[in-house]
Write a protein that binds this DNA or RNA. Structure first.
Lengths: 123, 123
DNA sequence: CGGTATCCAAAAGGATACTG
DNA sequence: CAGTATCCTTTTGGATACCG
């Protein structure tokens, strides 16, 4: 992989860059990891993700659904019930971001040490 | 991996989440991929990354340096010459983000199809 | 319950001018 | 050349109110 092809062209990102932003976005990462474990209702996801606003969760899920990563199953009952789950594509995406997340977790100690050394050298 | 531990606590993200944001940031991704190939001078990186402002490139490189992913070598010459390269930790990070980037590239067709179907169903 | 619409505050990002 | 400092625009995110 080269950096060319991931550049911005005039006034716009390359399309794969947008997908990368969707899956690594603040709530996208958490939604994918939560949904990898099991399907969730909207309100379950809200609780699982902590302090996400309705607007941001809706926006995140719609983006991931549009990209074909998340499946939305709205049951026609009252009160409404909507279940979210991963598609096969979404499961692949979740594995990728989980791998990246796991790496940051594994190396967090090294990062902390590096930061301490960096800050020390400048104080 | 569970989603707990990646939540926000009160008014702040968990630390590994910040590292993930650094390496997946707009310019962080491109800088890591460019530096994985070879070390670059500041101005070389500016050109390689396309249309990044000096401010954002500086900020990105400082963040990655502080996290211990990038090595900054400022030679005491006139005019100044500063070379950036990856540390061992940074090389690991670059491999991870490149894997994720490669996945989005591989699956871009599926995403496009999903988007077309999504948009079609709503028009 | 699971959203949408609107408004507003905060943060990110960039253009420009300047410096060692 | 490789930054820093300042200002300003754009984007993001959340709070609130309302709807089917």
């Amino acid at each position: 992989m080269t950096v060319s092809g991931w550049n911005l062209d005039s006034d716009q990102m390359c399309p794969q860059r947008l997908v990368l932003e969707h899956v690594t976005s603040r709530w996208g990462v958490l939604a994918l990891i939560a949904l990898e474990e099991r399907s969730h209702r909207f309100s379950e996801l809200r609780r699982a993700l902590g302090r996400v606003s309705e607007k941001m969760l809706t926006q995140t899920l719609q983006t991931l659904e549009r990209d074909g990563l998340v499946h939305r199953d709205a049951k026609p009952v009252i009160p409404p019930r909507v279940d979210y789950s991963l598609t096969d594509l979404g499961r692949e995406a979740a594995e990728q971001v989980r791998a990246l997340a796991a790496w940051t977790e594994r190396r967090m100690d090294d990062v902390h040490k590096a930061r301490a050394a960096y800050d020390e050298a400048r104080s």
